[in-house]
């Protein structure tokens, strides 16, 4: 029970993960609220179409905004799930499997999202 026989990794990652969760949480609070106000209050889903997105993405500002929001939100969420697995998945095998699938899936979705934001060409006709 005292964990004496288990390898004890130094909590370097945990420290930075803790800071990241707090900083990204505060930043996301502002970014997501702005995003929601623009998308659902100032505009509405009836107005949002390909043209709307193309216009926004013609400027680098909204691309950067969305990219930062995507990365922060995604890593924030993945780290949250990592912490839950750390807490509740006891057996070594399941832990390894769940963490590996979390990281692989996380990487794929993050790469796909970034790909769309970075390579979207507003000049291309729909």
């Amino acid at each position: 029970m005292n964990g004496a026989g288990r390898p004890r990794p130094q909590g370097g990652i945990d420290l930075w993960a803790w800071i990241f969760m707090r900083v990204s949480g505060v930043v996301l609070l502002v970014m997501v609220l702005v995003h929601l106000v623009i998308m659902h209050i100032i505009n509405s889903i009836e107005v949002i179409n390909y043209n709307f997105v193309a216009q926004r993405y013609a400027t680098p500002f909204w691309r950067t905004y969305d990219l930062v929001m995507l990365w922060l939100a995604f890593i924030h969420g993945v780290n949250g799930v990592r912490v839950m697995i750390d807490d509740y998945v006891g057996s070594r095998g399941w832990r390894l499997l769940s963490l590996a699938s979390l990281y692989v899936l996380g990487f794929i979705f993050l790469a796909l999202g970034s790909l769309v934001i970075l390579t979207f060409n507003p000049a291309r006709p729909f």
């Binding site: 004890r8 909590g11 993960a17 912490v83």
Partner: peptide
Amino acid sequence: LALNEGVWRCR
């Protein structure tokens, strides 16, 4: 306290 079983387990 910085170890894996230390303070970072506090949620």
